[in-house]
């Protein structure tokens, strides 16, 4: 009887880890503050409240499950307003990512609208840009590794590696929080990806706007050497919510109760 119980418990444990893996593990991120590269005109630290963040980006396999449940977001049913033509264009068909795409590779060519919907359907949400950047500034050991040369070099080197979107999730480093793939796999949507254009104060707005172009490219940046982050802000600024791009995936986050 005891043996049965042990076997049962072990079985349940295994089952639950498998299930949570399927369900996307997430980890708790403790609250903190950081000074973002853009978005604060006074360079004061931004407070990030405690929240839960997915350990991995959403994969092709997970996305198929979602589409089967919500067929209105499949490639042939999606409204043009919510995703442009390249939406899931690398897939074989509506519910088949084909043999060239790994089941555990991040799903890309997904618009912001659909990414947002996906997270909502899991009882989650997209992380905000501040949350994303806060988690992304950690390396294996430190909460904030942005000033570390090696860390920036690692991020920069990814920009020069072609076709990383075909790689499986979880193969880059595990950061301080236990989160993988913040760098080195794909870009990721955030809930307020284009918000640095909309700070509210029109004169400042203009200045912030110009930052991403020529001339004042570094005036408003809080860390001149943070080339790596410049790229992310530049990339995000070029996006629209219906865009679907090969190197752009997403993951979800959740408020802590």
């Amino acid at each position: 009887m005891l043996q049965f119980k042990i076997v049962g418990v072990v079985f349940l444990l295994v089952l639950s880890t498998v299930l949570t893996a399927q369900n996307t593990q997430s980890v708790a991120i403790k609250k903190g503050a950081y000074v973002p590269l853009y978005g604060t005109t006074d360079k004061k630290p931004v407070e990030v409240k405690a929240f839960n963040m997915d350990v991995f980006p959403i994969t092709n396999a997970q996305f198929v499950v979602f589409l089967k449940k919500y067929p209105q977001y499949s490639r042939s049913n999606i409204k043009g307003l919510f995703a442009e033509k390249s939406y899931l264009s690398q897939w074989k068909s509506d519910y088949d990512y084909g043999t060239t795409n790994l089941s555990n590779a991040p799903v890309t060519n997904v618009s912001w609208f659909v990414a947002k919907k996906y997270c909502e359907c899991q009882g989650k949400r997209l992380p905000s840009m501040d949350e994303w950047e806060y988690v992304a500034m950690a390396d294996e050991k430190r909460i904030d590794a942005r000033t570390k040369e090696e860390f920036n070099k690692y991020i920069l080197s990814w920009y020069e590696k072609p076709k990383t979107y075909t790689n499986p999730v979880g193969k880059t480093f595990k950061n301080y929080w236990g989160v993988y793939d913040m760098h080195g796999l794909v870009w990721e949507w955030t809930s307020d990806f284009n918000s640095i254009f909309l700070s509210g104060e029109s004169r400042k707005d203009k200045d912030t706007d110009k930052n991403l172009f020529c001339g004042s490219g570094s005036i408003n940046a809080s860390d001149l050497m943070n080339y790596a982050a410049f790229m992310r802000y530049g990339f995000r600024a070029s996006l629209k919510a219906n865009y679907a791009t090969k190197n752009l995936g997403f993951r979800c986050a959740k408020d802590l109760k």
Binding site: Y159, K210, L212, F213, C214, F235, A237, S238, L239
Partner: peptide, 27 residues
């Protein structure tokens, strides 16, 4: 992987075109 734009020194206008041409991959 990256977004780009273009500033042409032959252009008279904001950013030499840069302000109007920031373009995401696949666009």
């Amino acid at each position: 992987k990256l977004s780009h734009n273009i500033d042409l020194h032959a252009v008279t206008g904001q950013g030499g075109g840069a302000a109007s041409s920031l373009v995401a991959p696949g666009h």
